[in-house]
Design a protein around this nucleic acid. Structure first.
Lengths: 127, 127
DNA sequence: CTGATATTCAACCATTTGGTTGACGGTTTG
DNA sequence: CAAACCGTCAACCAAATGGTTGAATATCAG
């Protein structure tokens, strides 16, 4: 559905880019200065900055021969909204499940707990 | 740094997978039922579920010939923590900037604070 | 046992990603 | 003007992604 959400999450799915965003939290920076702490080439950092820009997470402003990179935290709001609404729905769901247990199964903790235990048990046997 | 954060964000960077997660919010589902609303093959959905599983966002529990998919919202906490701590740092930064404005533009001119404010303020006139 | 159902595996394909290197176009600076 | 600097572009590479199809593996039902 939402293409921009794809781009934002994809941009965040890389440690180098997350580190760049953290650096930009302190200060606007030139491309060369962004690249300095990393061990990869300047061209690679330039690509990362392009990905961050296309995702809307930063903006780049060229003044003279220097291109300043500026954080655009607004763009992260889409991701935050999605994740948090997700969390809210989950909370509602757990509420509903608790209500269901309380009202539908009454005060019989053994039977209700055995159902829940069966559903929640035996994870991570896959690998 | 954090590999799992890479995996979580990468898993979230696909609309199909986000839709699957939303579906699983309502109920645990079998793989075939997960695949039903999508127009791609069952094998493709199976791969998506594998990616979600490796990211820790869901778990898969095989009972008989049916593999039940269950949301594991715990894994999303890493992503939430990262994004929100990011937001907090931004808020702290804005706080510092507000302080700078308050103290620099006239209210309580204290010499020891003005030195710190000058250091903070320099990043905003960085051409 | 036979057949249907549920799911994955294996091979393949096109596209994207993350990296490299070298050359190139603007912009200062000496 | 000439040289140094800032950053991107182009071509290339290896690996991953997202999808397909067809065969394979379990499990259930009759």
């Amino acid at each position: 559905m939402s293409v921009s959400l794809d781009l934002v999450f994809a941009a965040l799915a890389d440690g180098t880019r997350r580190q760049i965003l953290t650096m930009l939290l302190e200060d606007d920076m030139a491309v060369t200065d962004v690249a300095e702490p990393f061990e990869m080439s300047l061209a690679a950092i330039s690509k990362h900055l392009g990905i961050l820009t296309r995702a809307g997470l930063i903006s780049q402003d060229k003044r003279g021969r220097v291109k300043w990179c500026k954080l655009e935290p607004q763009a992260m709001r889409d991701a935050i909204v999605w994740i948090e609404s997700f969390g809210q729905l989950e909370a509602l769901n757990l509420d509903a499940f608790e209500k269901f247990l309380d009202e539908e199964l009454g005060n019989y903790p053994e039977s209700s707990r055995s159902v829940a235990a069966q559903q929640h048990g035996e994870r991570y046997d896959g690998q």
